[in-house]
Design a protein around this nucleic acid. Sequence first.
DNA 1: GAATAAATACCTAAAATCTGGTAGGCTGCA
DNA 2: TGCAGCCTACCAGATTTTAGGTATTTATTC
Lengths: 212, 212
Amino acid sequence: MIKLLIIDDHPLVIDGIKTMLKDESYLHIEAAAKTAKEALNILEAGIAVDIILLDINLPDMDGLRLCEIIRDMNKTVKILGLTYVNEAGIITQLIKKGANGYLLKNMEREELITAINQVMDGTIYLSKAANEKIIQQLQSLGLPQNNVPVLTRREKEILQLLSEGLTSQEIAGRLFLSSYTVDTHRKNMLQKFNVHNTQSLMNVVRELGIIA
Amino acid sequence: MIKLLIIDDHPLVIDGIKTMLKDESYLHIEAAAKTAKEALNILEAGIAVDIILLDINLPDMDGLRLCEIIRDMNKTVKILGLTYVNEAGIITQLIKKGANGYLLKNMEREELITAINQVMDGTIYLSKAANEKIIQQLQSLGLPQNNVPVLTRREKEILQLLSEGLTSQEIAGRLFLSSYTVDTHRKNMLQKFNVHNTQSLMNVVRELGIIA
DNA sequence: GAATAAATACCTAAAATCTGGTAGGCTGCA
DNA sequence: TGCAGCCTACCAGATTTTAGGTATTTATTC
């Protein structure tokens, strides 16, 4: 008997998973949580589960962060991430945070069951559709696979403010920097991704899941 | 007996809706389609349904367009739009295209049933959560309600290319225009939305659902 | 037929961005 | 201890964008 915990804020998804699994008698949905808080309460109460289906878009906490917290609490439970969109960045980060696999929410029933079984066997399950898209994304960006540019903390911070529509001067004011410095970071980011304006930069980093 | 057609490319959603409605004996799910093409086949085959639950994000066709087509075919069937995100623009467009209401996919079972009943009674059902967000969005943008700027065909075309990261000159080349003309359109759009750079413009139009 | 909206195009000046440099200080790690 | 990476800061020139105009042509609508 494999015990499951579903963490997803959409009742529709919870009901859908229940239906998909109802004929598999060895799979039992032990509990379902609609928020990160609820999920942590369940886990802290000592309810034992074997596998957690974790939605990455939760209302009260970043799913990546929750994955990390759960992994810190419990080294053996299997975590299977669920996402609507497949973004290279999100998924690689998810695995880094200790997840055992991910699924896209447009999965078929068979894929869900395969993923659960594979993860329980100790291997990592990566949704096929998502994998294909990741490779295609990297190629379309003209970036070498396994060599996605890494942004520094400061760069990400500036990127975030750029995405909100601030100018270099405004960002400089906000971060107590010289606008020269902000420009340098912007220049470096454009270079890293081989693009020539802010709009293109945004498209690339969104595709890669570097910012929301 | 109310007959339903579900159009959604996520098996999870279809199963979830089935579960939510399984205790309502007067509601019967007549058919489910995963693509616009499948849905049109079903409708053209003459299968009679009373209400259609229509996902706006389909793989093969824009949900708004499909809504329009269905409404052209059949003036009496009730159409209830389903979306993950609530964007003012999408939703107002949806109603314009002849939908009888919309629901967010994070709905509870009760809301789904209320929506179906209300739509069958002939009134338009607007998800409460979405409504609140729309009002809040319009306010946060400093725009008068009921007076969202309207973009012309050309402006939208240029907006699309801007979102892809093209410069004025590149857009001019692509559309066989003078770059002066492109600049004029850009200027007019910035003015319409009361923003001062392209990045902010993108944020506003995305919030309003004017472009994807 | 007049009025209105849309699309086109041009001009200029100011502001911002992009590109290619250089360089000092700090931190963590090997 | 030394080196690499990051953050900071500055300069200058080229390019692009923003903002203020004006103006003609082409539908569309009343």
